[in-house]
Design a protein around this nucleic acid. Structure first.
Lengths: 415, 415
DNA sequence: GTTTGTTCGTAATGTTTACTAACAAACGTG
DNA sequence: CACGTTTGTTAGTAAACATTACGAACAAAC
């Protein structure tokens, strides 16, 4: 872990905040003259907070404000964040010194008062590497700008590589991407299949023959850059969260396998065994189903993984209209199955937004509609009136973009 | 909202922290000489943090430390929290001034050095009111000490009261509890059926005829005390979380209806429509099932609400051994149904601990075993090796104790 | 009995942080 | 041109925690 050697000061968890709704749920009582401390419904503080942590938080807040609505003045930022102009100026000076923020000159247009100096995140100051290892045939990598714009692409055929060979493939992609980067690299984000723990150790990715592989540490040692590794679906949901910053979001990623990424209360869900989202081998319904590679009957993956769907569709023949009808029914049935599995999750978490990621030609028609219908039929109507199920807007690049978001969030506290 | 008028200073959300595992997932990079801010995987800072917020947090940390492992010296607390002895002394002085902490004299036993002064949370300094409105026949209320010990009980027959009448019943319980309290009351916690928003407005509780009822505000206005209202199952899970402080916890509350309370990543799940845990009307399986009051077939509640189970069991007659066998099969079938619904939730969240709350005579035998078996059969074996399903240890008092925890957590940041 | 080393709690001081107050600069308006 | 407005900065203040230092109290060893 070379990268960790370079850390400054004690490494402590950073504070986060609850939503504004929860925040308003606060009462203070001057009981018996004793002002009693009040806080939101967050449980058990677990570590101390120093002034410098507070500053870090406020710094990230300023950066976030500029990131989401760039091209503002310091005074604008002050109004939006609630910090004073003085404090904002101070934080911005620090950000400018680090090259993350730039002054863009005076504001256009005519207004009374001293003209404002527009500042913005320098989206060209740093670049990010994003890797997607979830492809069965190909590993993808990109160089992005700070705003997630994809600048360069590198894809390498996996050619069945597993174990150490697959790691070397990853390292090779990283090397090539680094070669193509035209600005300092902020960090490397990797979306890997399988179970990945918070330290970036791939606990288990059978397809790649990886078990307890310290991928994060290896890449960090080799590049001396910050590296973040997480499960591909968990990474993908970050990309969608970046687009629609809701508090709760479920992304279903359908490809060679089926996985999910989940954000609850504005925070990614990891899972007790770091395997949150691994729903591919949950059994669907009570009427059997296709035999799965894992040995069980009726696993979600056995129902609707892409190979299974295409196989079914390819076997169709005959009258075009009849083929079309059969095709629709196959997809509808798969969509229903997804709805059956999701219903308890949507109900238990009271989710409002579910995103589908995968081949649009398979998912964006009868499949999608059947999933929605099934979800509505199987959950409480009143509660899920405003449930939305939509296709991912990022198409093939969800994981890549999510990997960039992961780095952005991890390094700068911004997304 | 009389209570809110008395609040001191700006009310802002308090910082919380991620787990120690996630905290270690931090890297800092002195890239190009620029120390880049680093934080955990929490997204989007939403509000500023002032020094006083940091102090509040640390104050709660000290209190929490004393609460969970009381009878320590200031130096002990300093070591455990990472704060210095000086800071701890300062915070403790504040807590002592407010009556929350007391000195208990010098430590027993022989050790070198100056003998420590033992301090502890004064568990008798304040009391808490807890209310459970989830009973179909009876509303329960208790007075508890700060540690959750139940000191007094008040129960009133509901006698079918709904709407305003039911509210008056609640107010009556509160009045009586206040009369029996023998110490200043820290606050009032209420577990209500139905959908409750974070401001304590009961959005919808059909059984009680409550719709958009601002219960929290009404009780706060009447008592001038801090009041916290939440869904009964969501409250109940707090009680269990108090007992086993895991990061993820699911509680299934089976009574007249079926509901769930969920803690993910150490924080209670609210849900986009404030209806998290409302799984009673999720359809189970794909083979129909009993007709539910809501009109659907095979709702979870139709399968395993207590009235439905007892009705089935009561109808049994004949040979004792045969009755016993039939009884076991009925319970097993119900348990299986619960397992079917929970499997996707357990899988998606990678839960390690699920708690059953309800009549032990129904749930603690074949029902429990069938649920576990079904869960294991329907989820990925490897991932859920260490899944535990256990009965609640709090029996009838889960909601009441949880209500107390809610107040404790909301007012003092402790649980 | 004395010395030594340890531990506890407190004082005093310094650093960091963000706030308030005040102000100069730059601009439109009457 | 005087005046009000807005911006960004400077100066000073208050809060919070760390560091350093110290007296008090005790155990253990001599």
């Amino acid at each position: 872990m070379t990268a960790t050697e370079t850390q400054r000061g004690p490494v402590t968890a950073e504070p986060t905040h609850t939503t504004s709704v929860a925040a308003s749920d606060l009462l203070t009582v001057p009981f018996a003259g004793a002002p009693i401390f009040t806080r939101s419904r967050a449980l058990r503080p677990t570590s101390k907070v120093l002034p410098e942590h507070a500053r870090s938080h406020n710094r990230a807040l300023v950066l976030q404000t500029l990131y989401t609505a760039g091209g503002q003045s310091r005074a604008d930022v002050a109004r939006e964040t609630g910090l004073t102009r003085v404090t904002v100026s101070d934080l911005v000076a620090e950000l400018i010194a680090e090259g993350l923020v730039v002054e863009l000159g005076p504001r256009e247009g005519v207004r009374p008062g001293k003209p404002a100096t527009i500042i913005d995140v320098d989206r060209a100051a740093f670049q990010i590497l994003g890797l997607d290892l979830s492809g069965h045939e190909v590993f993808h990598g990109v160089v992005t700008a700070l705003d997630g714009t994809i600048l360069e692409r590198v894809s390498l055929e996996r050619a069945g590589a597993t174990g150490e060979q697959a790691v070397e493939l990853v390292e090779s992609i990283v090397e090539r991407l680094l070669g193509r980067a035209t600005a300092p690299v902020l960090g490397i984000g990797v979306g890997s299949p399988g179970v990945v723990d918070p330290l970036g150790v791939v606990r288990s990715a059978p397809n790649l023959g990886w078990f307890d592989l310290p991928l994060q540490a290896r890449l960090a040692a080799r590049t001396e850059l910050p590296v973040h590794v997480a499960n591909d679906a968990n990474v993908a949901v970050l990309a969608e969260h970046g687009a629609t910053p809701l508090d709760d979001l479920l992304l279903i990623k359908i490809g060679h396998g089926v996985g999910a990424g989940l954000i609850v209360g504005g925070r990614p869900v990891i899972g007790g065994g770091f395997a949150a989202g691994e729903i591919g081998h949950v059994v669907v319904g009570t009427d059997g189903g296709p035999r799965c590679a894992c040995g069980k009957d009726g696993c979600l993956e056995a129902w609707l993984a892409v190979p299974r769907l295409t196989e079914q569709l390819d076997s169709l023949a005959g009258e075009p209209a009849a083929v079309q009808a059969a095709r629709d029914e196959i997809l509808r049935e798969a969509g229903r199955r997804l709805g059956i599995v999701l219903a308890p999750v949507v109900g238990a978490l009271n989710l409002t937004e579910v995103v589908l990621s995968g081949p649009a030609e398979l998912l964006d028609g009868p499949f999608h509609d059947a999933t929605v219908d099934t979800l509505r039929q199987r959950t409480m109507a009143v509660l899920n009136r405003d449930l939305r199920l939509r296709m991912s807007e990022q198409a093939e690049d969800v994981v890549l973009r999510g990997a960039a978001v992961m780095v952005l969030s991890g390094q700068l506290g911004v997304s």
